[in-house]
Amino acid sequence: MINQQHWRQEQRRPLPDAVRHRNQRILQHLGLAHLVAKRQRQQGPEEYDDLLQEACLGLIAGVDRFDASRGLKPSSYLLSRANGQVMHYRRDRAATLRIPWRLRDLAVQAGRLRDGLSQESQPPLSRQALARRLGVTDTRLKDAFVALQCARSQSLDAVPCELAEEPTVDRQRDWLVQAMLELDPEQRRVLQAHLIDRQSLREVAQRQNVRAGGLRSVIQAGIARLQDLAERDGELSLRSASL
């Protein structure tokens, strides 16, 4: 969007009248480009800035070619031009291997969910937990991840995706991820920062604006809770390793 200051600066530029009027029409309808970019952002993995750039190119072309004598509304015509430019952008850069849009969108949703949890300093979810959160089966989510990986450009020396080995399943790690969710939020944040992210107690205390001495009791209580959960779930190796 453009604010009033930028609008006044544009008015003061020493430009020919025809160019000034053209720029004014573009700026007046710039919100349509943002609208198209926001809508298209939900349909694929492209970056918002790339989509906005293409939408602006379509908007500019639409302003140059708009013919009021045809009886069309400027907003309707310019919106279709901006949207069409984004669609051409996607078509020209589409992968040779076409992935069903439902699988592609599912992989994108899972990635956004993981990013959101990471930004909130929450422990990562396993693929099975992600599938439950998204309301799909684990097999369906696995297919979505494999499809998205195959669609990306790879080196000619890379192993084909259909021949890639299944990553080793770390059962204890998956259990720990789920067990962390049952901890008190404060315990989860402190254990995540100190034991998993390898931050010192001083760093954790500074980030959370608390005393370092008080964090030790939080860590001890959190570990004790994890030991109880390990005994409940039959993960006795966790208790044995800590003794």
Rank of each mutant, 00 (worst) to 15 (best):
Q192S: 08
Y89A: 10
R93E: 05
L243R: 08
P124D: 05
L30G: 01
G222T: 03
L117P: 05
L79Y: 14
K73L: 13
Q9G: 14
L59W: 00
V204E: 04
A94G: 09
H29W: 12
R133Q: 13
G234H: 08
A164Y: 01
F145P: 08
D67K: 01
L215C: 03
V146Y: 01
L156Y: 01
L181P: 00
S240W: 12
D105C: 13
L27H: 06
D170N: 15
R188H: 07
R90M: 13
V19W: 07
E165K: 12
R104E: 13
R104A: 09
D228N: 03
D115M: 10
M87F: 02
Q9K: 13
A205L: 11
Q206N: 02
N23C: 15
A158L: 05
P14S: 11
V169W: 02
E120Y: 12
L27N: 06
D157L: 15
R216F: 10
R114A: 14
N83P: 00
A107Y: 08
D49S: 09
Q42A: 15
K142Q: 14
L72Y: 03
G116L: 15
E47L: 10
L236M: 10
V169A: 03
D228P: 00
D197Q: 12
Q4I: 13
P100T: 03
L156S: 07
K142A: 15
R22G: 02
P167K: 01
C56M: 15
R232Q: 09
R112W: 15
W101R: 13
A241M: 11
L103W: 07
A151Y: 05
S237L: 11
R202H: 04
S153G: 07
S155H: 10
I60C: 00
Q154N: 06
D157K: 10
L226P: 11
L148K: 14
R39S: 10
L243S: 07
C150G: 15
D67R: 09
A129Q: 14
Q11L: 10
G84P: 04
L226A: 04
A193T: 03
A82R: 04
